[in-house]
Design a protein around this nucleic acid. Structure first.
Lengths: 341, 341
DNA sequence: TTTTAATATGCAATCGATTGCTCATACTAT
DNA sequence: ATAGTATGAGCAATCGATTGCATATTAAAA
């Protein structure tokens, strides 16, 4: 019940030295002799000393905490990235606070505020879909706190960013659909303020153009890209009798919804309509037919994001290297998009 | 670049009062007059004062942080529970540190250690599948730190726990399979040290018995319940020519694997084999056929878990109420388990 | 008017670790 | 032998907020 936690003073007392010496010994400071260090370490173990990170954080200004903001952890992509970050961070004795914005702008602002108040040493984030401005992120930068963005980035900020080549991924996918016979491809897009959706749309458009197909704005839709959005939009398109023979979605969730609605309306996939998503969520391989999608290289992305972060952290206030890393995504071709001839 | 953060001293200086008064005013202490409080609040806003939680945590011993340990956040169930916890916690001005054990015992022990060192005010956890002993959790209790377990609990600890009635959920499901004609039902189970798997197995067995069907140990398998485990086990069972006409899995992931293997081997689901999972992961409704499963009431569970936690926190060292809450799960019947007659 | 009790605020120690600066000792070089 | 230089360790301030105890002011009671 009592908090008889051992402190460096207890160690100091036992060894008849001062707390400062103990502190230095524990931190492997060269100013302390090996003999003393050994004794300190021994006593520390003996009395089960556990450093008080709070006290250390207060004095040193370093909390050894990294805040990670994701729209939702409940996504294979994000949780994989988080895992990559965690692995490197933990190995460097940093702890990771995961917070979710739930794709809500206000919540994102609050979260940044909260992390700043918790005095995290830095923040890694992927921006919410509904984010209207990036003042809250700007504030982080102004405070001189390291910030790295991944995947859902923005051009409005001068920070290190890690992304995949969304244009390339989308281009490859749409090109693949066209090569398999599609001529009228619907595209599910989202908030163009978010770079990735903008880039994917550009990839879609460029692939069409390069194949001599005109871009038809009627085929491009904007939504939150959830399953329900996919369902709704697909139904609307079917009802409106717009001619189409393919669907390329910026999200696996909405393409899933589209697939359901297509089947419910008697469309054969891939015979009549070919579809492809983006993200390589595990369930895309479970569906009937399995869905063609784009793998976002989440594990490497997590690793590289963390590396960029620590680079920034170690650089300190000097050389504000705003590095942008671009990974090549991989098109995963499955049955939903190919001619079964 | 500079950390010109405002402190209570700055406020004190401006108002010609002391820091203690400012501190009390900010904390709405009744010993401070309303007039002073108002002035303090006004200046605080003016100079954009942000409280330093680290300092406050050091002095008061309260970090206002709750550690949440889950096997993986990348699961609809867990992320929903986390969301429930977060909502209540945030409304009470607590922050949540999410950490994942990745179902690894050692990692879980380390995580507990790390959270304790971060001086969290309490811990909410769901135990890893591979956990061999609960000494690390025992340590939390001994330190007098509030601990609440949810879903993956253990009987070895005298703590507040929140679970669903796994026996009931399993019983309902197996009974439903039997009512739809199954007589030889395979069961995918896992580490019986984890209560939920033990209970689900009991529910399975009791449903069989109550329907006059003998329990055949050959039909009960133990694994990690991942998709791959489901695939492997299903294939083994098919290869071994064991007679079966139904599968009830303690996890949606392994039943997904089983479904794939069944289809690959030419079995018709549900005509020849009826299947059901547990957890109501979103993808179970995407499959062909959609999979019958059990919903675990994740949102209420998160809410109730958090409530139990704060109850414990507020009780302090007095009245160590180890409350156990049991929620009723809901059988979600889909095509994979019903006669299409 | 004096005493009593509220009421409002200040003083100073404290939480535990870190760190710039000082100091003592021992060793090297001149 | 004496100045010069490492080397190892201590002193005391500090980080920013909290809190037990003391004090000053004012209002109510005697």
């Amino acid at each position: 019940m009592k908090k008889n936690r051992a402190t460096i003073h207890d160690i100091a007392l036992k060894l008849n030295i001062t707390a400062s010496t103990v502190s230095r010994a524990l931190n492997d400071n060269p100013r302390i002799s090996d003999a003393t260090k050994k004794k300190v370490l021994k006593v520390a173990k003996q009395i089960n000393y556990q450093p008080n990170h709070i006290a250390s954080a207060l004095r040193s200004g370093k909390s050894k905490l990294i805040g990670v903001i994701v729209p939702t952890a409940n996504r294979n992509f994000f949780s994989s990235v988080i895992r990559g970050i965690e692995e490197l961070a933990n190995s460097l004795n940093y702890k990771v606070i995961i917070s979710q914005s739930y794709d809500d702008f206000d919540k994102e602002v609050q979260t940044v505020e909260a992390l700043l108040n918790a005095r995290v040493d830095g923040i890694i984030a992927s921006i919410a879909k509904t984010t209207e401005n990036v003042d809250h992120f700007q504030k982080i930068i102004e405070k001189g706190i390291p910030l790295v963005l991944f995947d859902r980035i923005t051009n409005l900020l001068e920070v290190s960013q890690v992304v995949i080549d969304d244009h390339y991924g989308a281009y490859q996918t749409v090109d693949h659909l066209i090569k398999n016979g599609c001529k009228r491809i619907v595209h599910f897009s989202s908030n163009p303020r978010i770079n990735i959706y903008h880039e994917r749309k550009r990839g879609y458009e460029d692939a069409l153009k390069d194949n001599g197909i005109e871009v038809d704005p009627k085929l491009i839709t904007f939504s939150n890209l959830q399953l329900e959005d996919g369902r709704r939009i697909m139904q609307e398109i079917i009802d409106s009798k717009i001619d189409f023979d393919g669907v390329f979605s910026s999200s696996d969730y909405s393409i899933m919804g589209a697939l359901q609605v297509l089947k419910e309306n008697g469309y054969k996939v891939p015979e009549q309509v070919k579809i492809a998503g983006f993200g390589n969520e595990p369930f895309t391989s479970f569906t009937e037919p399995p869905i063609t999608t784009v793998d976002q290289k989440s594990i490497p992305m997590g690793k590289i994001t963390a590396e960029s972060f620590f680079e920034l952290l170690n650089a300190g206030s000097s050389s504000p290297v705003a590095k942008k890393t671009i990974l090549k995504p991989e098109l995963i071709i499955r049955k939903s998009s190919i001619n079964n001839s």
